[in-house]
Design a protein around this nucleic acid. Structure first.
Lengths: 298, 298
DNA sequence: GCGCTCTATAAGGTGAAGTTAGAGCGCCCC
DNA sequence: GGGGCGCTCTAACTTCACCTTATAGAGCGC
């Protein structure tokens, strides 16, 4: 069973012609080369060199083997560069799942920026509801998730990475467009866009209304804040969306208003409990956090 | 610098799930696997496994590396089969040069028979004059030559491998066809096919004539005995050719007569002095010799 | 709590691969 | 023809990657 080192020595000797020069190239002593060649001949059962007046002349067999060995060396080199790239995060595939409001805005920008300095890195971004995200992560199809709502799935762990708040987006020609702040309960007085009380976002807003003894009303029900933004931009009416949805997008079709009261929301990262997270994912997570902070302040 | 053994252990553990089963498969002890994994992690600088409640769960990086390693294993296996094939002569390329009389008959048959049991073996047969054969061998383009004349080139060594003789081939309707033997000097009395006095064959025949004080005459001059046979078969006249040219061919267009006197010729193998001959060539050489003997007797 | 399965650690053995030192051979050149 | 040069080979010793056995300890099912 010939091994890689033996092939390396064999090829080098054939290439440079003498054991002495091969030894120099491989940074070992000349006898090391000489012994290795003899040993290789004995285990392969082949005559690899003809000893002619103190010189080594490779046989056709040796040349043939050395030629074939090139493919092996290529694969060896390939593995090494892959290991190096994996260490510095410029190889591998980063599977991320996120809610549309993040994925369409700041997250996709962050991913693009992250990938820019990492040639060879493959990324995948799947958008979906919190249930879909949870499913992707718990099954191992995504290794990192981001959402403004959290999951209670036993094999997914969620950790808050940033604080945000609801903002109200208002079509340009809407009466609310001149207000400095929008009172949340006032949304009942105009046709607005909102979320089902079955969703976490809906429940969050519900609480403001119920505190005032009111019941929330809305003209248009959507599932994601990203959709809400689109509807608002289309002129349907005002909508409450997470401020993350606006980061990295300068949407001139709507005006953004702070709300009264302020409704804080949390962006969480989601990771699988059973599957280990890759170095790459961990690196991206911290990259995203600082990217996020910069985006907010800037 | 990760090595092949480390990749083998890594891949096996990922494949079978536990160090214990991997150890069993690789025929080593369990701690050997455990230590190897740790060592691999330390030299690559990557976390390859998540230790979770006493179990090992591979990270995406580890899986990625293991996948890439498959290509390396494939090349490794390839080299090993090539070495095995080279040892038993069923790989490599056998470059042979020969004179046409041998190459068109017994040699090509021998080569076919030799290659039959050696899948993967490539052969090449170049026909030419002794000068062309010599050139091919001394330059390394052929590693084995066969000829009925010998070369004096300093970097080509010739060793006789078989004895033969001239025979006279006669067209079926020729007057000589009824003789039991053909006297060589009688060839002067009919239009015959022969070789230039510049060639070794021509000089060999010349000697018979000059011993009788005669000068050889012929109607048709050819270079190779194979050509002479074709001309004779075409009805031009009788020709002296080496008996090797007839081995393995049952030519019904001519009759073969022994000559008076008998003119022995030698078939020699030619090998390069500077380039080593491959095991393959040596194997073929002895194969050819026994094949040859069998052909002669049979 | 017991037995089973798994991983990790400790301490020691072995052989492949490397070292230095030196001999021997062929070639070239004065 | 003798000395320098470049090459290969042998011998004896060192080193370390990889292996061993023995053992500990954690998690899990009954």
């Amino acid at each position: 069973m010939i091994n890689a080192r033996q092939l390396e020595v064999l090829s080098t000797v054939i290439e440079v012609g003498t054991t002495a020069r091969a030894a120099e190239l491989l940074n070992v002593s000349q006898p090391a080369i000489s012994n290795m060649l003899r040993h290789t001949e004995s285990i392969t059962g082949l005559t690899l060199f003809k000893r002619d007046r103190g010189r080594l002349i490779p046989t056709p067999e040796a040349v043939h083997i050395a030629n074939e060995a090139k493919h092996l060396f290529f694969q060896q080199q390939r593995i090494r560069t892959i290991v190096d790239q994996l260490r510095e995060g410029s190889a591998g595939t980063l599977h991320i799942a996120a809610s549309p409001s993040l994925g369409l805005g700041v997250l996709s920008k962050a991913m693009a920026s992250f990938a820019k300095h990492r040639p060879g890195l493959r990324t995948s971004l799947e958008l979906g509801s919190i249930d879909e995200i949870t499913d992707l992560i718990s099954s191992g199809r995504a290794e990192l998730g981001f959402s403004i709502t959290t999951s209670r799935h036993p094999s997914v762990s969620a950790t808050p990475i940033a604080e945000g708040r609801f903002v109200c987006v208002v079509p340009l020609d809407h009466p609310f467009a001149t207000l400095s702040k929008v009172r949340i309960v006032d949304l009942n007085s105009v046709p607005s866009i909102s979320y089902s009380s079955m969703t976490q976002l809906g429940q969050l807003i519900d609480r403001v209304f119920s505190k005032e003894g009111l019941e929330r009303r809305y003209a248009c029900e959507v599932r994601h804040t990203a959709t809400a933004l689109e509807m608002a931009a289309g002129g349907v009416g005002p909508a409450l969306i997470d401020n993350f949805a606006m980061i990295g997008r300068d949407d001139t079709r709507v005006v953004v208003k702070e709300t009264e009261p302020t409704l804080p929301i949390r962006i969480s990262s989601l990771t699988p409990k059973v599957f280990p997270t890759s170095q790459l994912a961990s690196t991206f997570l911290s990259f995203f956090q600082s990217y996020f902070e910069e985006s907010e302040t800037g």
